[in-house]
Computed example of a mutant assay.
Amino acid sequence: MADVVLVTGGAGYIGSHACKALRAAGYLPVAYDNLSTGCREAVKFGPLEEGDLADRARLDEVFAKWQPVAVMHFAALSLVGESMKDPAKYWRTNVLCGLNLIEATLAAGCRNFVFSSTCATYGDQDGVVLNEDTPQYPINAYGGSKRAIEDMLRDFGASHGLNSVIFRYFNVAGADPQAEVGEQHVPETHLIPLMLDAIAGKRPALTVFGSDYPTPDGTCIRDYVHVSDLVDAHVLGLKWLEAGKPSRVFCLGSGEGYSVREVIARSREVTNREVPIIEGDRRPGDAAKLVSGSTRALQELGWTPQRSALSTMIADAWRWHQAPEYES
């Protein structure tokens, strides 16, 4: 049997794409998901084990059954606004469940751990290309909880020999080019799918949260990376660990930032449709500009993003949003 990789959040947006990439690379991805936000229908490339990360007995059972060679940890709460209103929920779910998973991983004798972190750990550092050495000053509980798991991985690496690759990235976009899986959240909070829903008439309009940021057009600037490129990097990170290389942090991004208005303008070009817009207030915890540098991933992992041009990401997402499987 192929080597097993346990993919937490494997029924979610990024996790389902990771399962496809792992299967293509010769692994058997086992999705571990409580289906609170994931979709059962997205688990297409390996088995699904339903379970919660808070349930240590269930985790131990799944580890004993499949004996994975590695864990890819995507499962997390990830809404910035919600994390500002209810930080306890994020510290409890992301951090305590993350600790539970790490301890279960070690108890099962598994030593390779690939973690989906975020550029939100850096906070609001305008005018800086965020690389692996940039100091981390998270400004919301989401970013803080992710940084806490990074710290745990470091500590358990020193004390128990847990090897980890940590990927920090911000806005993931696009969809599988074959439209087998795509971006589908309930509720949806990400710019590009919200924009495409507004274009398609599935919601009245796109709300632009804040137009008075210190940016050229007043809207937030973000670095976007295609989900297929992102999960390719995760497979490379797994192979890095399997080759016996040391724990490492990598930033992933295109290195270019696009404002909300620039994304809207590009979508008009791709879809040939107008985007209905409502001007809204800023959301608490939103940074003005986040651009992720990924030189280390290019040089050390040999990662070459193929689909992270903005037009390509929007076009792939638009194709998925028109597929029969997609329902907003």
Rank of each mutant, 00 (worst) to 15 (best):
S294G: 12
I314Y: 01
T295V: 14
S308N: 10
P305Y: 02
A297S: 13
G293N: 11
R296Q: 14
E300Y: 01
S308I: 12
P305C: 06
W318A: 15
W318V: 10
Q322K: 12
L298A: 15
R307K: 12
Q299L: 11
A297T: 06
W320Q: 01
R319F: 11
W320M: 11
I314W: 00
E300V: 13
A297M: 09
W318Y: 14
L310Q: 04
S292W: 04
G293H: 05
L301P: 01
S311E: 14
W320N: 00
M313T: 04
D316F: 06
S308C: 09
L310E: 11
R296W: 14
W320P: 01
S308P: 08
V291N: 00
M313Y: 05
T304H: 07
V291P: 01
G302F: 10
W320T: 00
K289C: 14
S308V: 07
P305A: 04
M313V: 06
P305F: 02
A297F: 01
G302C: 06
E300H: 07
R307F: 13
T295P: 05
E325M: 07
L310W: 00
L298R: 14
T304I: 04
G302T: 07
A315N: 02
R319E: 15
A309L: 05
A317I: 03
A297R: 02
W318G: 07
K289P: 00
S294K: 04
T295H: 14
S311G: 14
T295A: 15
L290C: 13
A317W: 02
Q322T: 11
G302R: 04
I314T: 05
L310F: 08
V291Y: 01
P305W: 00
Q322W: 04
S294V: 09
S308A: 12
H321D: 14
I314Q: 02
T312F: 02
S292Q: 08
T312D: 10
A317F: 08
A323T: 12
P324G: 08
A309R: 05
Q299V: 09
A288P: 08
W303D: 00
S308H: 10
W320V: 03
S311L: 06
R296V: 15
S292P: 05
Q306R: 14
Q299Y: 05
S311F: 09
S292E: 06
G293Y: 05
A288C: 13
Q306H: 09
A288W: 10
L310S: 12
S294W: 13
E300A: 08
E325G: 09
G293A: 10
T295D: 15
L290H: 03
V291I: 15
M313E: 15
E325C: 04
H321Y: 13
K289R: 11
Q306A: 12
A309K: 09
A323R: 06
M313R: 10
K289T: 13
V291F: 02
L310G: 03
Q322S: 07
T304D: 04
L310R: 03
P324T: 13
K289Y: 06
A297K: 01
A288L: 03
T295M: 11
S308D: 10
W320K: 02
K289L: 07
A288E: 07
W303H: 05
T312C: 07
T312I: 08
D316K: 00
I314D: 03
T295G: 13
S292T: 11
Q306N: 10
R319I: 14
Q306C: 06
G302I: 03
E300M: 11
K289N: 12
Q299S: 11
H321A: 15
R319T: 15
A297G: 12
